[in-house]
């Protein structure tokens, strides 16, 4: 008798939880009903290009009336989603390898692929006097160095390439922490949890203060970033129009503002 009551109570917490889920579901059904409609274009964007994509997207919407809907993530993450038929019509990667692979696997249209930007990495710290060139890395007077996951994020791979070119990989390895993408990497540095980190130039170009080192280009290969029209976007006029817009003068101005090379 007593046991039965106890059991009932143990499971009551789950009934309470179910009720909360129901409430959450009701609250969420609002935004979900507000889905995409004709004239919208769904675009997967590598995290380093977040700010630039937002500005280019706003200009595109002002010029054409079509609304771009962005999803930001690491290039690897977005690519994995595209292999599983994610609803993206355009893929703005942070490398050339994934768009090429998407074309090879029939997930994207080969003739649509082009380099929309070339990105650079910067060693950045929120602290004013910390970063003073490669000597900072050699001295190693810090506890945590943030980079993006080199397996999924090309900016992380570029950071590893630069560290290896300096011959410091073994020495710095115990201090490295990885962000899931370059946006999280910057967040680690911005919150001060890591004293410094390799971030995208575009992320810090408009930030005053801190200390930084523009990693010289003989230490890594500036990151050529390719755009491609996915199979999902093959029949979308808006998606094609966005890719044209991405090569145009307005987009070029935004890219320059964020420190990107203009690409093809």
């Amino acid at each position: 008798m007593r046991r039965a009551r106890l059991q009932g109570r143990i499971w009551r917490v789950d009934g309470f939880r179910a009720a909360l889920w129901l409430l959450a579901g009701l609250l969420l059904s609002g935004p979900l009903a507000n889905g995409a409609c004709a004239g919208d274009v769904r675009i997967a964007v590598a995290a380093n290009f977040t700010q630039a994509a937002r500005e280019i997207g706003a200009a595109f919407q002002a010029a054409t009336g079509n609304r771009p809907i962005f999803s930001f993530g690491s290039t690897g993450q977005l690519y994995a989603q595209i292999t599983q038929d994610a609803p993206f019509e355009v893929f703005l990667a942070a490398d050339q390898a994934r768009p090429r692979k998407a074309v090879e696997n029939g997930l994207a249209l080969g003739d649509s692929r082009f380099t929309y930007a070339t990105g650079k990495i910067t060693l950045f710290s929120k602290m004013r006097d910390l970063v003073a060139g490669e000597a900072t890395l050699r001295d190693g007077r810090f506890t945590r160095l943030a980079i993006a996951n080199p397996d999924t994020a090309p900016y992380g791979a570029a950071a590893v390439a630069a560290i290896k070119a300096l011959g410091l990989y073994q020495a710095l390895k115990p201090k490295i922490v990885q962000g899931n993408n370059i946006a999280q990497t910057y967040q680690f540095v911005a919150t001060g949890n890591a004293e410094l980190g390799f971030v995208a130039l575009s992320q810090v170009i408009d930030k005053a203060g801190g200390s930084r080192w523009a990693v010289p280009e003989h230490l890594y290969r500036p990151i050529a970033q390719d755009a491609v029209l996915t199979r999902r976007g093959a029949d979308s006029e808006t998606a094609r129009a966005f890719l044209v817009f991405l090569r145009g003068p307005e987009a070029r101005a935004v890219k320059e503002k964020y420190g990107y090379g203009a690409g093809d």
């Binding site: 007593r2 009551r5 106890l6 109570r9 143990i10 009551r12 917490v13």
Partner: peptide, 15 residues
């Protein structure tokens, strides 16, 4: 925390 506290609290209350 809730997954541990809740069942123990329920058990304390039950007797």
């Amino acid at each position: 925390m809730p997954f541990v506290v809740q069942p123990i609290r329920n058990a304390f209350e039950a007797f």
